[in-house]
Design a binder for these strands. Sequence first.
DNA 1: TTATACCCCGGTTCTCCACTGGGGTTTGTT
DNA 2: AACAAACCCCAGTGGAGAACCGGGGTATAA
Lengths: 145, 145
Amino acid sequence: MELSCKSEYAMLALLALANHYTQGEPRQIRQIATEQQIPDRYLEQLLATLRRGGLVRSERGAKGGYLLAREPWKVTLLEIVECIEGLKTRSSATKSSPKTIESAIVREIWQEVRQTTHSVLQKYTLQDLKEQRDAKQQLNIMYYI
Amino acid sequence: MELSCKSEYAMLALLALANHYTQGEPRQIRQIATEQQIPDRYLEQLLATLRRGGLVRSERGAKGGYLLAREPWKVTLLEIVECIEGLKTRSSATKSSPKTIESAIVREIWQEVRQTTHSVLQKYTLQDLKEQRDAKQQLNIMYYI
DNA sequence: TTATACCCCGGTTCTCCACTGGGGTTTGTT
DNA sequence: AACAAACCCCAGTGGAGAACCGGGGTATAA
């Protein structure tokens, strides 16, 4: 369960798609990449992963691009991170079950940590991020005046 | 902020030290390593890190070994993880401040996740682990009867 | 003096991240 | 039909870190 650059990029891309969700028109990799300052060839791979994970769908050919596969409020951040990080299980988590009592105890703590991270990520959807974005946008305009 | 194998080993080692804390005699790497099933040369490195981090102190020479630097209830799991993982900041966290509004939003979420992980790890001390261990120990004995 | 411990440094293999690049395929437009 | 715009797949690269192994040095008790 990482919070790597990959996940951040994925979030940004999906948020970009969520912002244009009502239009119903696909957005291109290049667009998103320049808008969100992400290396485009890298973003391409991430979007492919998200597509295989069923979070976005793509349209090929000219005027093609990517669209959210679901409504923004039906996509939790947990789904995104799990899709992109691919259920990493570092720390020899599942493999090699704990032999000593002590290691069982430690694993329980690890489990608790993982659980709380999950619940944080699960309580937010793309819609929430979009709303936060809009709020912040408004704030910036206010300051500008 | 990782939950790698390293951290698990460190926890186990410190827990092993905590269990013998009242004796006041140092425990050797080899002892701990065989008891907790950790490769000893690797454990050596981790204990060195913990020593530099002020969590354990060492006595050299024959009859030497390692001791907890503080009482078990004064060592939080967060300290251990931070000492061993060395304040990792993956995801380009601190470096390269967010340029877009969207990335600022995502960073806030990241921050929240990190915060909750911290608070979970901070609420436990080595003493707590020791007590959990003892409780589980008792349970196993009960089952055996 | 010797055996026992820690101490320090270095190297290895592996995996993953964050990219970059080449070439192929689908599709709308002219 | 030709073309360009997009996605698609696959491959490679450089660096970092994890999880080790090993050698040789140094302090200390017996």
